[in-house]
Design a protein around this nucleic acid. Structure first.
Lengths: 193, 193
DNA sequence: CCTATAGGGTACGCGACGTACCTTAAAGGC
DNA sequence: GCCTTTAAGGTACGTCGCGTACCCTATAGG
């Protein structure tokens, strides 16, 4: 019997357990004791690997979602942008999103953790997707060349995130998404001519 | 001696104490026991008035800052907007801002608290200030009439807030503010013609 | 085979929230 | 001017969860 797990194997078991706790109880409910119990080990093994709960939470998050990056190509900038926002809205309002938002809040005062989050949550990849989307629009002649600017690319998602922060709640109505596109993104692109 | 304080008076003493704790130790350091001790009372009196720490924190926050709303009038939209952003940046990066951000994080999962926050932090007033700023620009003929749109008015501040969330930390370089104005707000206003 | 390393078990210190219960002062009607 | 109701003071406690300390035991790898 026995076969005491070590190294890699144990580590995966812990992350797995943590991820399940995250899914079931959210970040607030993911206690170290419960993770240890669920992984069939003890807190020692955890603290030898991660310095505190937040670090474990973030590490475990990747086990939840392998964040598929959308890459819509509807033929118009408006269509693409709306699609991106809708996908993001869906993701963020899912249980996943709740976990992610809780983690973000927990990491808010630790730059190191924040950086980790950005990596794991695919924020950078997301930004690049928006940029290439804009470049396609430029190529189609739908937008002036100067429209493919990083600041422009990140604006819609930032507005969406700010919207979450405003409302308590994790689902933004579709009208808001449309408004972000029609009242901000498109005029903005147009105005950069 | 005695003169046991009651009602109003005691309430103010508690809020005062809580505000001082907030200023000195931040929200994380504002414990119920310490507030009670500092106010020269006990937790009973506190819990009879606020259901939990977060509520007290939010209530106390107003004692910290009577949030003076800036209302720059530099003669140009660009100047006004930059001034607004700079003021906001300064506020948010002050110790005040740290408290405010901590409170926001703590209230993130409770819509009722969030609503309270919005009130107390003057967010709505801020939005109105931006809108009237835009209206002045319209009146000067500096912007098309459709530029004075709520979504436009809230965009710069939302971008600033998102910037805080991104970076860990509480001071955004001036270049970013300039970029928000030059690369987003002004083109956006122009593009709405 | 034997030793260094890492996992298992367990207990504990500590801080902080929120609650329970009783005592005591103050307000306000009669 | 008493007396009841209400609210404050005092204090102790239950609970939870993080992080740490210790000591025992299996296993890897020389």
């Amino acid at each position: 019997m026995s076969t005491r797990r070590r190294g890699e194997e144990l580590e995966r078991a812990i992350l797995q357990a943590a991820a399940e706790e995250l899914r079931e109880s959210g970040y607030a409910g993911m206690t170290m004791d419960r993770v240890a119990a669920r992984a069939g080990t003890n807190k020692n093994a955890i603290y030898r690997r991660w310095p505190h709960r937040a670090a474990l939470g973030i590490a475990a998050y990747r086990h939840l979602s392998d964040t598929v990056m959308p890459n819509p190509d509807t033929g118009t900038l408006r269509g693409d942008a709306l699609e991106m926002l809708r996908q993001a809205n869906e993701t963020w309002s899912s249980p996943h999103g709740a976990v992610l938002r809780a983690l973000l809040a927990a990491a808010a005062d630790d730059p190191a953790l924040l950086a980790l989050m950005r990596e794991r949550s695919g924020a950078d990849t997301m930004d690049r997707a928006w940029l290439t989307m804009l470049e396609r629009a430029v190529a189609r002649g739908e937008a002036p060349p100067t429209a493919a600017h990083p600041r422009v690319a990140t604006t819609p998602m930032m507005l969406l995130r700010a919207e979450y922060a405003m409302r308590g709640i994790p689902s933004v109505p579709d009208e808001v998404l449309i408004e972000i596109v029609d009242e901000v993104l498109l005029p903005l692109v147009r105005g950069r001519a």
